[in-house]
């Protein structure tokens, strides 16, 4: 019976396919898992040859990421060990013969990242929604050209734009300020936000607003009370993509900030301790930095395709 044979073969093919897919997925995730485990490894385990899979987890990496430490002399150490008011992070540092003397720069960098990414996302989504609505509902002269222009701004390599912006910012006193980076990230995210949101607004039937206008709503009220609630999903998805861009951005931050407004990405490479690079701290910093991105990306996975193609492809 050829039919049965055919089915048997199909099942075998499927088993192979599924096994292969799972195996590839695991291989794919090894670097991420390695980062995860390195963040919790003690120093010896990180440089162990051959690489160690099992180890005693420690918070050493996180402690050295968040704190500034100084080496203790033996006498100081004995004094320290007698103290009872030590917190767990003090104890972790003490095991290495170190005392915590304050928070590290990383804390400030992450704070800067949060402020800059947060505000620029809100600004990009707000401005983007307004222009998306205008492009979607009103007749705009040379609409296609404007939209193409908006998209083309995203194609520019950051390094190319930074030279004149650096000079401009220096003149205006915006170099190494939060507002400088916020303006820049807002501008760069606007292309994405206008394109994505225009797609979402286009999908809201015009009839709703027209009915509202007939009922005596003003345009602004119709926008606020009908279009806004209807495009909440689009706004959320757009916000996530803008947030990821601003949160991960490296080139502008490297070239346009030095200390006060520096964000986390350009500073993670410089987490170097007394004994060369502290990989546990680097991994801990990377991990904490990546977790929010993974969570929000997971939340909008349905719109991922739409987001990365600027709304060109809908699924």
């Amino acid at each position: 019976m050829p039919k049965v044979e055919h089915q048997g073969r199909a099942r075998a093919v499927k088993t192979v396919r599924v096994t292969l897919a799972i195996a590839l997925c695991i291989i794919y995730l090894i670097p991420v898992l390695w980062m995860l485990s390195t963040a919790f490894k003690p120093r010896e385990a990180i440089v162990a040859v051959p690489p160690k899979i099992t180890f005693n987890p420690t918070m050493e990496g996180f402690v050295s990421l968040f704190t500034k430490r100084s080496t203790l002399t033996r006498m100081q150490m004995e004094q320290y060990q007698q103290r009872t008011d030590l917190s767990w992070w003090d104890k972790v540092a003490l095991e290495r013969g170190l005392a915590i003397i304050g928070p590290s720069q990383y804390v400030d960098r992450v704070k800067n990242s949060l402020i800059i990414a947060g505000i620029s996302t809100i600004a990009a989504v707000t401005l983007g929604l307004l222009s998306a609505y205008a492009f979607s509902r009103f007749r705009v002269r040379a609409q296609a050209d404007w939209l193409f222009f908006i998209l083309s701004t995203r194609m520019l390599p950051p390094v190319v734009v930074t030279i004149p912006i650096f000079l401009m910012y220096r003149q205006l006193g915006l170099f190494d300020t939060h507002i400088g980076l916020i303006l820049l990230y807002t501008a760069f995210n606007l292309s994405l936000s206008v394109w994505l949101l225009k797609g979402f607004v286009d999908e809201i039937p015009r009839e709703y607003e027209e009915a509202a206008l007939v009922d005596g709503y003003s345009r602004w009220q119709a926008f606020r009370k009908i279009v806004l609630p209807q495009s909440v999903t689009g706004i959320a998805a757009t916000a996530v993509f803008s947030l990821i861009f601003a949160w991960n951005e490296y080139a502008f931050a490297l070239m346009l900030t030095s200390d006060r407004a520096r964000t986390a990405p350009p500073s993670i490479p410089s987490v170097v301790g007394t004994a060369g690079r502290e990989w546990a701290a680097t991994a801990a910093g990377s991990l904490l930095f990546l977790i929010p991105v993974v969570i929000v990306a997971f939340a909008v996975r349905k719109y991922l395709l739409r987001g990365i193609t600027f709304g060109a492809i809908r699924q």
């Binding site: 897919a21 799972i22 997925c25 794919y28 995730l29 670097p31 991420v32 390695w34 980062m35 390195t38 990180i46 990821i244 949160w247 991960n248 490296y250 990405p265 350009p266 993670i268 490479p269 990989w279 680097t282 991994a283 990377s286 930095f289 990546l290 991105v293 993974v294 990306a297 997971f298 996975r301 991922l304 990365i308």
Partner: peptide, 23 residues
């Protein structure tokens, strides 16, 4: 699996580069 495979794409390239140095 599809979602998990998409994780690397979302990461910050500079952090990824740095970490692969260890790998």
């Amino acid at each position: 699996i599809t979602t998990l495979i998409l994780i690397p794409m979302m990461l910050s390239p500079v952090v990824v580069g740095l970490f692969w140095k260890l790998i």
